[in-house]
């Protein structure tokens, strides 16, 4: 394959501008890049939610109801952070086991990541139930609407990730590390790590900023 770079000779009569034959595509790389682009577009959804959160966190949007300080505890939020990041680390170990072609160990780490992720959902549900019972359901004020929206949007992403993990456990058990299973595991890695990345912003700008 001829690769033209910046420092090549200037084109002349003999220059080949493109290849006559199509070379073989790397199916896994193509699909992983496609999924990466999808995740970048998903980040714009969160950008819209964070923009709305910034707009709706002025005192006029509290409508006399709970404020950010009342609904988001930094310490509880940090406990959630530790739990979620641990699940992300466990998923990292799935990739390490994949790299070393150890399907049973990969299934084990997938289940660990799943259980810790499910525990995070439990913590979040517990937290939101308390907020609702303490007079902070989403319909109470503009601020509470966007607070619930941001936290639940992230939680729903996690639920789909958990579902995807169970599907991958079944696929590894059935097929082993085939090409299809491998690129799906790599995409789920991007998906799961990305949820940890989004949580960084949820924690900083919802939980911590609310208590400043």
């Amino acid at each position: 394959m001829i690769v033209a770079g910046l420092h090549d000779d200037p084109p002349g009569p003999g220059t080949v501008l493109w290849a006559d034959i199509d070379h073989e595509h790397d199916m896994m790389s193509t699909r992983m890049l496609g999924f990466w682009l999808y995740m970048l577009s998903d980040s714009l959804i969160f950008a819209a939610l964070f923009a709305a959160y910034a707009v709706l966190s002025y005192p006029t949007s509290f409508m006399g109801g709970p404020t950010p300080r009342d609904v988001a505890s930094p310490l509880y939020g940090y406990a959630e952070t530790v739990v979620l990041f641990t699940s992300v680390f466990a998923y990292g170990m799935v990739m390490v086991k994949l790299r070393h072609d150890l399907p049973r160990a990969a299934i084990g780490w997938l289940l660990v990541s799943f259980l810790i992720g499910a525990f995070f959902i439990g913590m979040e549900t517990h937290e939101l139930r308390d907020v609702a019972l303490a007079g902070g359901p989403p319909q109470r004020s503009g601020f509470l609407s966007i607070f619930w929206c941001v936290v639940v949007a992230h939680g729903v992403h996690l639920l789909f990730g958990l579902l995807w993990m169970l599907v991958m456990v079944a696929q590894i058990a059935r097929d082993g590390f085939t090409q299809l299973v491998t690129y799906r595991l790599a995409n789920l890695k991007v998906y799961w790590l990305y949820q940890g990345l989004i949580w960084t912003f949820v924690y900083t700008f919802v939980y911590l900023r609310g208590s400043i």
Binding site: M32, V96, R99, T182, Y183
Partner: peptide, 23 residues
């Protein structure tokens, strides 16, 4: 498939470093 370049980037040391540093 597990020898694909993108899979080969995974390393337990890096994941652990990332875990500790971000927390």
């Amino acid at each position: 498939p597990w020898e694909h370049p993108e899979v080969s980037l995974s390393s337990a040391g890096k994941y652990f470093t990332g875990y500790v540093v971000t927390l």
